[in-house]
């Protein structure tokens, strides 16, 4: 029987593991290898440069800028969609009429490509006839022409708003799933005992939603670390690198400047950050499991 099982394990796992190993695991490790070289993407010859690429990271002004932007991007990506998603979930959970339609509307942006989302929002920020400037002009009564995406002060935040618009629906459905697990009688008891709506939310609902919050926050962090497409479309990392992220910086160094060795070094740093976050996530998940499982 054991013999028989072994045969089937190998037969069934062979292809998936082979594909995953060859095109995901192996490249992951060779990234480390290339990060110690000066490969330019085309020559067959390259040489080992030791820790030069990592030393360069330490002094690269653009890397520092990208790291700061990634941090801002991540913080905003956690706070905005999570808060808004929780709010929407609470409102929808109150058995409001048309909840299904509302849910679909808030969720719709998730199925759009980052390219499309980028294009839509580029139009909203368009200086001459964009929706945002049109509205501001209407309110103030004078022609308002501000190029939101072309100014270093607003470029990153403008993209963050577009990103939040797309991600809120995801946070909402995860919170909605979490809310259905909270027994209605529990809240009724609290109400009878005289707890105010705010107290019920703060002391009962929010703590019971902790597992959902862990998931939402982790997803936001992971998705924002991947943040590339929408920035590529809306700002290309500009103006003056004011909206560059690490993922964007890695792409530019590797595929625009053809410094693939240096690009690999940046990707190793990205990998380590992701690893740290995933480690934290699993630990937190276990903790939540222990408390509420």
């Amino acid at each position: 029987m054991e013999q028989h099982n072994r045969f089937w394990r190998i037969a069934l796992l062979g292809l998936p593991l082979g594909l995953f190993g060859l095109f995901v695991v192996w490249p992951l490790f060779s990234s480390f290898y290339y990060s110690f070289t000066d490969w330019n993407g085309f020559d067959t010859n390259y040489s080992f440069v030791g820790f030069d690429n990592f030393a360069k990271i330490a002094t690269d002004r653009l890397f520092l800028q990208a790291a700061i932007n990634t941090t801002i991007w991540m913080a905003a990506a956690i706070i905005l969609p999570t808060t808004l998603g929780l709010m929407l979930a609470l409102l929808l959970d109150s058995r409001v009429a048309g909840a299904r339609v509302f849910k679909s509307i808030f969720y719709l942006p998730i199925c759009l490509s980052a390219v499309i989302v980028g294009q839509i929002w580029t139009w909203i920020y368009q200086p001459d006839w964009g929706l945002l400037n049109t509205i501001i002009s209407q309110i103030t009564g004078e022609k308002f022409k501000y190029a939101w995406l072309a100014k270093p002060d607003t470029a990153l935040w403008s993209v963050i708003v577009a990103w939040s618009w797309q991600q809120t629906g995801l946070a909402m459905v995860i919170y909605l799933a979490g809310l259905t697990a909270i027994p209605g009688d529990l809240l009724e008891v609290c109400e009878i005992e005289g707890a105010s709506p705010w107290q019920r939310f703060r002391r009962v609902v929010l703590p019971l939603l902790a597992p959902s919050t862990v998931v939402v926050v982790a997803l936001s962090v992971i998705n924002s670390l991947k943040g590339f497409d929408i920035l590529y479309i809306m700002t290309g990392g500009g103006p003056f690198n004011s909206s560059d992220t690490l993922a964007m910086h890695m792409y530019n160094e590797s595929f625009k400047k053809y410094l693939m060795g240096y690009g690999s070094a940046i990707s190793v740093v990205l990998f380590l950050i992701a690893l740290a976050i995933i480690g934290l996530y699993f630990r937190q998940l276990r903790k939540v499991d222990r408390i509420y499982g």
Binding site: L28, S31, L225, S254, S267, I277
Partner: peptide
């Protein structure tokens, strides 16, 4: 395998391009 879901794709870009 599941952990593969969480990593930014940039991590494997260069080696895959070379491959």
């Amino acid at each position: 395998i599941v952990a593969g879901m969480f990593f930014p794709p940039q991590v494997i870009l260069v080696p895959l391009f070379r491959l």
